[in-house]
Simulated scan of single mutants.
Amino acid sequence: MDNRIHDINNVISNAIRVMEDSKVQIFEICESARQELQALELELDTVIQETGEVIDKADELENQYRMARIRLTEVSRDFVKFNEQDIKNAYDKATQIQVEKMMYAEKEQQLKARRDDLQKRVRNVDMSIERAQTIHSQINVVLEYLSGDLNQVTRILESAKNRQLIGLKIIVAQEEERKRMARDIHDGPAQSLANLVLRMEIAERMIVKQEFEMVQHELKDLKAQVRSGLEEIRKIIFNLRPMALDDLGLVPTLRKYVQDFEEKTRIRTKFETIGREIRLPSAMEAGIYRLVQEAFTNVIKHANATYVSLEMTYQAQLVKILVADNGVGFQVESSEHLAAQHQGSHFGLIGMRERAELLEGRLEIESAKDQGTKISIIIPVNAQERKE
């Protein structure tokens, strides 16, 4: 056993060293790509500004050319008032403006082509950065799991394998949550802000041209977009930790969550409370909220249900949470066996059981094939007091 542990230690140490080196290289690649992206975005902004200026100049030349054509027509028709030199001057001016207009039209096409090329390169580099960040995150997951106390290997080998898997699953979940948040911010508020900057520049040009009616319409759209971006930010904050949990308490926050769940999923829901509601310690309320959230998430992923109910019972020494659905159900014994063998999709239930145990509570599951599922969670309300 000692030689086996020593060999495992060497393998893990070598793996950690290789991954640390790879992590540094990926970070350098990512930083280089970010610098390239910054330079491309700066060049793109310059090209966009130049394109706008060229378009404005082309519009101005178009107006001048139209006026020159009108002037040429006037002098060509009135031989009494205008002589041959006047006609020649009008013709030369119209020709000069036409040539200049064609030059700016060509320049406009070139700038637009350059702009499109830069936008494509910006998207490609941005995707490369995202892929590098994903690989970097995956390496972090493995390093965080492997870099623990290697002297604990004996106990890890002797303990249940599913606990190791749960630990890794928790780390993966944390990294996935960070990645989801970054993606939500990038695709939501960040894109909205970038679009706002561009549209504000357009509004500025409209003001210069005194197109006030169009400016008013643009500002109305901008206001709507700001409100939409603010709503996205509030949703992200709510997913991190619902502020209503601290301000209003557990029951109002769960009621709002259940309503939003029904609107989003079109699954009919019901929420009931029994007994007199009491405020619980903040950590306990947060833990219960996450347990309910995970139970409802499992309904979406696995139950294929059309109805789910949440019942909370307040008693003197405990709080009972009951989540029931009319979904496809499953064999409880086989699901736990598969989870222990790291082959099933029931890590969520195991994680819920672990979370309930952290609150010194217990979780029970009743289910059968095509009979729906009931998850009962009992939390002693004086658990925090006993700990303190």
Rank of each mutant, 00 (worst) to 15 (best):
D2K: 08
R4H: 06
I16S: 03
V18G: 03
S22E: 15
V24I: 13
F27N: 09
Q35N: 09
L40P: 00
I48A: 13
I48G: 09
Q49G: 11
D56F: 06
D59A: 13
M67E: 15
A68M: 05
R71W: 04
R77K: 15
N83T: 02
D86K: 04
K88Q: 13
K93M: 14
A94S: 08
I97Y: 01
M102V: 05
M102G: 06
E106F: 11
E106W: 05
E108L: 14
K112H: 06
D116K: 11
V122M: 02
I129Y: 01
Q133V: 05
Q133E: 12
Q133Y: 06
I139D: 04
I139H: 07
L143E: 00
D149L: 02
L150E: 04
Q152H: 13
V153K: 03
V153Y: 06
R155A: 12
K161R: 11
Q164K: 06
I166G: 04
I170P: 00
V172I: 12
E175W: 00
R180K: 12
R180H: 10
D184E: 15
I185E: 05
G188M: 01
P189S: 05
Q191T: 08
A194W: 08
N195P: 00
L198N: 10
I207K: 08
V208R: 12
K209G: 06
E213A: 10
L219M: 15
K220D: 12
D221F: 08
K223Y: 10
A224P: 00
A224S: 08
V226Y: 07
S228R: 09
G229Q: 09
G229H: 05
G229I: 03
G229P: 01
E231Y: 10
L240I: 14
M243Q: 13
L245H: 02
V251W: 00
V251E: 04
L254M: 05
K256S: 13
E262Q: 14
R266A: 12
R268T: 09
E272Y: 06
T273H: 00
T273C: 05
I278T: 13
I278V: 15
I278F: 03
N298V: 05
V299S: 07
N304M: 11
A305R: 03
T306W: 05
T306L: 08
V308Y: 00
I321C: 06
V323A: 05
V323T: 15
D325H: 03
V328N: 07
G329E: 02
F330D: 02
S334K: 15
S335M: 14
Q341W: 04
Q341K: 11
Q343Y: 07
Q343T: 15
S345T: 08
I350M: 12
G351N: 14
G351H: 09
A356L: 00
R362L: 04
K369G: 04
Q371T: 08
I377P: 02
I379P: 00
R386G: 01
E388L: 14
